Amino acid sequence: MHKVVVPKRSGIHRFACLALYRALLRKCSRLPLTVASPVSVKFLVQYKFRRCRNIQSPSQVINALQAGYEAVDLLHSTSQGNESEIYRLQTLLSEGRSLRLLNASEHRELTNARCNKPLSALDKKKAESRRYQRATAYRHPNAQPILSRPRPVVSGRRRVPVLVSARGVPFLRIKKPQPKILSDVIRTKLDKRWNRILLRDRLQAELLLAKDEDDWDGLVGDETLPSWTSEIRVALEEVIEKIQGSDQKNKELAEAMWNVVLSERKLAEEEAERRGLEIQPQSFTNPYGTFDAATMPTANDEIN
């Protein structure tokens, strides 16, 4: 069997095509402005080479190379002022422009006449999800703080929110799907806490090295040098304080949100009794348990 040679992976073929490409570009730059626009001819050359770069058929490769060599001769004759070749080049450019316009108009007509395929249930669900994400990407101008609940009067049946813990960040879920701005806020808080934990671990590792440096300074008897561990300890204490402060804020926010859930639940039961209905038993579990300092994440705990 003959060895199969892919033209675009052949060094000889690539060298010949690149040499032809450079020759055509050089000829384009030498065209007089009165004959044709060098920019349009250069764009046409680049477009043709991009279209033909994946050709593998030997006959098509030969035809494309022959067309390229004829174009080099045509451009050379045009740059020398040959009247017949100038007319031929202008005719080819005008015909190519009209053909592109005709193809574009036909393509638009076919696109407009094509029947739109009905979306499946999954595609409709994805489109609706994308639309909802775009609509909830920014805060609504009339949005009220979540801690302003419970609302004394609501239209329809009252929705009791659910307290959810997103890896330590509390929030109240009213309904699904979740707004995009809420997801972005939670992700930002989690990333900030995780970056502080990574910084804390790096400072703790550097603190061990700084202690070794201080021990070495003590051995050589140079007491005039500043301590290596002092600045690292200060930075480490600042990071731990920020982590503990954010955890304390999350704890206080979770307590306030849990009170909102209890108030909403009480109002929902009262409204159900007024309607003469029995409210369905629901399980309102506090994801944080009892609000004790021992149950909250600390600065020494890592996010799993």
Rank of each mutant, 00 (worst) to 15 (best):
M1T: 08
H2L: 12
H2P: 15
V5S: 10
G11L: 10
I12E: 08
R22I: 01
L24A: 00
L24D: 00
R26E: 01
K27N: 06
C28K: 00
T34M: 02
V35H: 02
V39K: 11
L44H: 05
C52Q: 14
R53I: 11
N54W: 11
I55G: 03
S57Y: 14
P58S: 06
V61A: 12
N63K: 15
G68C: 14
V72G: 11
L74V: 07
L75H: 11
H76C: 10
S77I: 01
T78H: 01
N82L: 08
N82K: 13
E83H: 13
E83A: 15
S84C: 04
Y87C: 10
L93Q: 14
L102A: 13
A104T: 07
S105R: 14
L110D: 11
T111E: 12
N112Y: 06
C115N: 14
L122N: 05
L122M: 10
K124S: 10
K125V: 12
K126E: 13
K126P: 01
A127M: 08
R130A: 09
Q133I: 14
R134L: 12
A137Q: 12
R139A: 03
A143R: 11
R149L: 14
P150Y: 11
R159S: 09
S165V: 02
S165L: 04
V169N: 03
V169T: 05
P170A: 07
P170F: 14
K175N: 11
L182D: 08
S183H: 07
R187F: 10
L190H: 04
K192M: 05
R193F: 09
W194C: 01
R196Y: 05
L198K: 11
R202E: 14
L203I: 02
Q204V: 05
A205C: 07
L207N: 02
D215T: 00
W216I: 01
W216L: 03
G221L: 01
D222W: 03
E223A: 06
W228D: 00
W228C: 08
T229W: 00
E231G: 02
R233W: 02
E238M: 01
I240N: 09
K242I: 03
Q244D: 15
Q248D: 14
Q248I: 00
A256E: 15
M257F: 11
A268L: 09
A272D: 12
L277R: 13
E278W: 08
E278I: 02
I279N: 07
P281G: 06
Q282G: 13
S283K: 15
Y288K: 12
G289F: 04
T290N: 00
F291K: 05
D292L: 12
A293Q: 15
P297L: 13
